[in-house]
Write a protein that binds this DNA or RNA. Sequence first.
DNA 1: CCCTGATTCGC
DNA 2: GCGAATCAGG
Length: 194
Amino acid sequence: MSWTEERVETLKKLWGEGQSASQIAKELGGVTRNAVIGKVHRLGLSNRTSGGAAPAAKPAKPAKAEAAPRAAKPAAKPAPKEEPATEAPAASAPAPAPTPARKAIIPAGQPLPPQPSANEISPEALASVREVEKKARKLTLMELTERTCKWPIGDPSTDDFWFCGLPVQQGKPYCEAHVGVAFQPMSSRRDRKR
DNA sequence: CCCTGATTCGC
DNA sequence: GCGAATCAGG
């Protein structure tokens, strides 16, 4: 594939919308995210935030095309970073911010996740949860890792208890299906007509 | 391990 | 100009 005008245009558009390089690459097809990034740079639109405030002085990057593979790695990270890492399925508002909030306005034409106001767990979510629980890996607490869904299934006080264990959705503690039910926009649980 | 963009450099 | 390989960070 080559960078036809059309493809370049799409690239510009999507990049402008804040799409990630990989997403754009997927959409364009025939290219990798690297190709996309490379093109973006060549086009000179690497920085999404036009503004101009040139960020920082990029130190120097030691050319790696040397006889020294990777012996030299002058890296120092005295960063006292604090990570709240609070993961509570609570019915609090899910913070949907996959893309930079730079542009407050959401680009039109993008598939936005539905935002039901008076939602009650999408039937699909429930369905997929059931589905998922059937193919759950049934992991024990000890088997859980950073990337396994930590959704508990069954009764903790019995043998009949395990964790989903499917691949988590990046960032989240649960797999896609469980994220769907864990992060509910808000209340509205009470009035189940029955 | 998954992802992100940034950079280099052989092609 | 292109993009894989690599780097660097989340």
